[in-house]
Design a protein around this nucleic acid. Structure first.
Length: 490
RNA sequence: GGCCCCUUCGUCUAGUCAGGCCUAGGACACCAGGUUUUCAUCCUGGCGACAGGGGUUCAAAUCCCCUAGGGGUCACCA
């Protein structure tokens, strides 16, 4: 394309004005995948030139979010690299010098308009249907230099006549009439450089070969391409991803859904599922595979295959995907990942769970196909930690149990029958089989025993196999819960 | 409002570049069955789309034009 013999170097350049956004994460992911696929480098650069809103805490949160997802970088503020520094505010010196040169050769000029004047112009443009473009209001060089000594000014880029074209890796040929492009501000009156200026400087000096970002940057691209041309530099290849949309079809925002990667982490989404879901926003591995790893992404990602239209973020499908990952987990791993949530819910201490590790894993196994998020587990296994006389009966469970007029006798007789098994510690399979026989011999239907039994043991209307539950509970708890139920269900 | 981008089931998408293999495939959701001690899982089936209109062609979801709709952007934010 633009640069055939350049080394492949891509960057993700978030501004630390908040935690990692779901859209930013996808941008990072695709850039990362492209770099990895082509044996290139992936660079993390912090765009902190908005000093008002940028904070070290946000920067840390962004890095943490990336790490959690498993997107690693070869160069960045924390790991360094040969093209540092990797925070823009630490690179200010290099911008100033270039700006001076551009004023000297006329590709940039000083503008002395006050904020109010600019405001007024914009008002006029918007209401009168004129082109909302600021162009060519520069003074002759001498007057400009003279006024510069007393009055504040900004440096603007002088947009030449013509048409600016570039080949977008996702959209193909894109062109803008230069008459539509503002003589945009490169350097503010306080001497600090603006985004479009800084980006070009940094991408150049960091030898970035491909710039892939969200579609909201599409109109910035001609400004940047023009700057590359004015500087006699070869621009990188550009690509603009479609936006991730909320239910309202507008750019996903906090109003229309959770946008922070961190909040999905807290809710207990497996990071692999988050990554997988992000891939599905605008890209597909093939015509039928929904579940795949980042290795598959790396092996097949091509920006030309990315959809051009925006995609509405579907929380339902996201949840389904999370569940798929949870179900496919190895139980030990799943237990490890759920453990913090069980502790946070106050059901047990970490030490306790680690001591009863085998038991805990078995408990997790009973719920593996019922939970979709790690955070779903605590509520589902809370009954295992309840006091035997105080198991919380779900209204539906109690209703089911009370449907059977013979419930009290059934439970009492069943407990009596069960007692020898409890004492002998009979395995679940055996008790399960024998119980079925017992139900048959007594001429009962299964629900007549199982509904009261489930309510007594777990308090829930649905749940795992009751004989697995009994094993987890242990003989004493089973006894007590059945006895308690004989009173509570009277 | 100007400019730019976009448009396949409700949603995510395959197919569009190289027109026929598309009576448009998959997934989520939904509906109906089945399995199960219940819930969940799992299995089977169903519902459901080429924005509209003109061309080009033997043939168009695919190419061209127009219209409509949606979005983005118009900062001394990034």
């Amino acid at each position: 394309m633009t640069s055939s013999n350049r080394k492949v170097r891509l960057r993700f350049a978030p501004s630390p004005t908040g935690s990692l956004h779901i859209g930013g994460a996808r941008t990072a992911l695709f850039n990362w995948a492209y770099a990895r696929r082509h044996g290139g480098r992936f660079i993390l650069r912090i765009e902190d030139t908005d000093r008002e809103r940028s904070t070290p805490e946000h920067e840390a949160a962004v890095l943490e979010g990336m790490r959690w997802l498993g997107i690693d970088w070869d160069e960045g503020p924390d790991v360094g690299g040969d093209f540092g520094p990797y925070r823009q505010t630490e690179r200010f010196d290099s911008y100033a010098e270039l700006a001076e040169r551009m004023v000297a050769d006329g590709t940039a000029y000083r503008a002395f308009d006050s904020t109010e004047e600019i405001q007024a112009m914009r008002e006029t443009w918007m209401h009168s249907g004129q082109k909302p473009v600021y162009q060519g209001r520069d003074l002759d060089p001498e007057e400009s230099a003279r006024r510069a000594e007393s009055d504040p000014f900004v440096l603007r880029f002088r947009v030449p006549e013509g048409t600016t074209r570039f080949t977008d890796m996702i959209r193909g040929e894109v062109s803008f009439d230069n008459g539509e492009v503002d003589d945009w501000v490169m350097v503010r009156s306080d001497g600090t450089p603006t985004y479009n200026f800084v980006v070009v400087c940094d991408d150049t000096s960091m030898e970035i070969s491909h710039v892939m970002r969200g579609e909201e940057h599409l109109t910035n691209t001609p400004k940047q391409v023009l700057l590359y041309e004015a500087l006699g530099l070869e621009p990188p290849s550009f690509g603009h991803f479609p936006l991730i949309l909320g239910k309202d079809k507008k750019k996903l925002s906090k109003r229309t859904g959770d946008t922070a990667v961190q909040s999905y982490r807290e809710k207990g989404y497996p990071p692999e599922a988050v990554l997988n879901f992000l891939c599905l926003q605008g890209w597909a591995l093939d015509d039928k595979t929904e579940i795949f790893s980042v290795q598959d992404l790396i092996g097949h990602f091509d920006p030309a295959d990315v959809s051009k239209g925006g995609s509405i973020f579907d929380p339902e499908k996201f949840l389904w995907l999370a569940g798929e990952y949870v179900r496919a987990s190895e139980v030990g791993d799943l237990a490890e990942r759920c453990l913090p949530y069980v502790v946070a819910a106050g059901l047990a201490t970490e030490a306790d769970l680690r001591e009863r590790r085998d038991w805990f894993e078995r408990a997790v196994a009973t719920e593996q196909e019922r939970i979709r998020l790690y955070a779903d587990l605590p509520a589902r296994i809370a009954y295992l930690f309840a006091r035997d006389g105080e198991v919380v009966y779900d209204p539906q469970a109690e209703k089911n149990a009370r449907k059977h007029a013979d419930r009290l006798d059934t439970l009492k007789d069943y407990l009596a029958w069960l007692e020898p098994h409890l004492q002998a510690g009979s395995p679940a399979e055996e008790v399960r089989a024998r119980t079925r026989d017992w139900v048959g011999e007594r001429g009962l239907k299964f629900p007549q025993l199982f509904q009261p039994l489930r309510c007594a043991l777990t308090g829930a209307a649905g749940g795992p196999d009751l004989f697995d539950v009994m094993e987890l509970l242990g003989p004493q708890a089973v006894r007590k819960r059945l006895q308690a139920a004989a009173e509570r269900l009277a």
